[in-house]
Design a protein around this nucleic acid. Structure first.
Lengths: 335, 335
DNA sequence: GCAAGCTATGTAAGCGCTTACACTCATGGC
DNA sequence: GCCATGAGTGTAAGCGCTTACATAGCTTGC
């Protein structure tokens, strides 16, 4: 007998029907304790594990959660993924991950075969059109968003407006008046709320502080180290460069720092730099940042989803908080 | 009709049998071009996508690859994952990821239900006993290892002995004689070849250089920033601290640098530090390192696996190479 | 012109589960 | 003592595909 044991093998060995085996092994009621024990013993002896495909086909539930991210090899997404996986694994769910490139607008989530494999979907920072959101809401699949806000979809949300406002205000309070923003919207992404909200928060803070808004100081860093590097180069090439920079992510801030060092400049002596995330190495390079509990974002999304799958839908977003961590990359402007 | 269309709906609409639909949609031979076109049109009109569970149950193939890593939120693993996902997605396979904590020896891979969902398994830096390796080899599941060498299992391998030898020799060539090793084996991991080989390479280089081996200079950094930090603290507290450190990973090297800076010391002025990986921020902090094409490790593993699944098994490991990237964290010892 | 050999298609038997429904006994209230 | 009740178990019908096998129609060679 080389192929794996089936439920029938277990039933024969335990001397009961397959239905009883199915019930016993899934802890359903109406199974006599003695029978349950016999079934469990038989299953253990045969090293039986139910076939997930068969189980999914018969029950309609896959016990799998899919997770869509713009890219797999980024610090933020791997943290979110880790947080979700821990919670899901504990609940007996498996995690199917896939990348959806935000710059490919034809790539509709629901058209991905992978989504059919899952009971639910966690979307992280994916640009979703209203139309697609409606399609998702109408589908069989439960969806929870992380990071961005999509109409009708529950989410683990950061108050991005406030994060940006606070970060900018930190620079303002140090005395800066010429403050740049390194953000990123990118080509295909229209609805992606994170950069939009953070930009709005930045603008609100500048306005609140009575500071002029110079469009030349708002540049795109594509949420990557390399992008932040380039963006900072552009800023420093201006005839009147900024004295402080708010980067929408630590990775872009790293790139910005790198560019300063390339120019034999330093933070905060020449330019103050603040990021968002509290990346693992932010501490190492002394980056002031708005801390996020990123692993917790994933864990919360997973918990929210599990509640949905149990039918408890209270329709409330989960709000996660941020806070300023002051390190050595920000300080008063040079006079 | 709220539930998704089935193959039967497509068959009715196209006026053929379900068998023909199945064949037409999977590009099998012996389908008349006109019929195929009609089936494809019907499928498109209904927005039909086959149910993966049903397909898996009937065919025995899930079109899914599972990937086991010690943890999801580490730079190295997320890169490997990304490399594999890109290749697998292009071939129509989905990626199921899960964490196997190396310090839990009771956690056998084959006993994980998740593995039953997959046609094949990529294991990355997982501590696998010979017994478990044999069990895997005998199973229905194809397995490819990344990073570590397991008997009977094809792998994407780094010549870890050489990496360590070369890194150590770089320090030796700069004139260092008191060289420390920050590595990591950890409790439960007995067979995990990466630290074992790297340690051997370190020892070989020291011996080749005619240098004394001081066991006090070999410390555990657990392959994390925090662990490297602690390890470096222990080293610097020695009555005779090292003048150079070889850390088995960049993340541990970052921790080591951090500890130096905490002590108002610097690399390479006080201690030279070299790592392995060429982590995204290694460049930023000027870390000398042994470069690895980590994304490529995952991609190669995926390609190897796809070949296996097509029945082409040539039994050859894929070797990936490393090279020294000299930056500012290494230099001659202070005299 | 006909058997042999194709190609194109259909028929139907599973794949290994879950679950609605039916059934058999105990048990208990009256 | 009888019927309603409910706990424990079995029977069997799917779930939506894949695929071995059967069949029907066309070529082709001689």
């Amino acid at each position: 007998m080389s192929s794996p044991p089936t439920i029938e093998d277990v039933a024969n060995r335990a001397g009961v029907s397959v239905a009883t085996v199915s019930r016993a092994l899934r802890d359903l009621p109406n199974v006599a304790p003695a029978t349950r024990a016999r079934v469990e013993a038989a299953a253990a002896e045969l090293d039986y594990r139910p076939d997930p495909s068969a189980s999914a086909l018969a029950s309609g539930r896959t016990k799998t959660i899919a997770m869509a991210v713009p890219m797999l090899d980024s610090w933020y997404f791997s943290k979110v993924m880790a947080g979700a996986e821990t919670v899901l694994a504990a609940a007996g769910y498996d995690l199917l991950v896939f990348a959806v490139h935000n710059d490919d607008p034809g790539d509709r989530l629901l058209h991905r075969p992978v989504v059919r494999r899952a009971d639910a979907l966690i979307v992280v920072d994916i640009d979703i059109s209203d139309e697609e959101a409606a399609e998702l809401a109408a589908s069989r699949i439960e969806v929870v968003a992380v990071g961005m806000k999509v109409p009708q979809m529950e989410a683990v949300v950061v108050d991005d407006h406030r994060v940006a406002f606070d970060a900018t205000m930190h620079l303002v309070s140090l005395g800066h008046t010429r403050i740049a923003l390194i953000g990123g919207v990118g080509e295909g992404r229209q609805q992606f709320s994170v950069p939009i909200e953070r930009r709005a928060g930045f603008v609100a803070a500048m306005t609140a502080a009575g500071l002029a808004l110079d469009e030349a100081l708002i540049v795109d860093g594509g949420f990557s180290v390399a992008g932040g590097h380039r963006a900072m180069a552009d800023l420093m090439d201006l005839t009147e460069p900024p004295t402080a920079v708010f980067a929408m992510s630590d990775e872009m801030a790293f790139g910005a720092l790198r560019e300063l060092w390339d120019r034999d400049m330093d933070a905060p002596a020449d330019v103050s730099v603040i990021g968002v995330d509290n990346h693992d190495v932010a501490d190492l390079v002394g980056l002031t940042t708005m801390q996020q509990q990123v692993v917790e974002h994933g864990a919360q999304a997973a918990r929210l989803l599990l509640r949905h799958l149990l039918g408890e839908r209270e329709g409330d977003d989960v709000h996660v908080h941020t806070g300023l961590i002051e390190r050595s990359s920000t300080g008063p402007p040079r006079r």
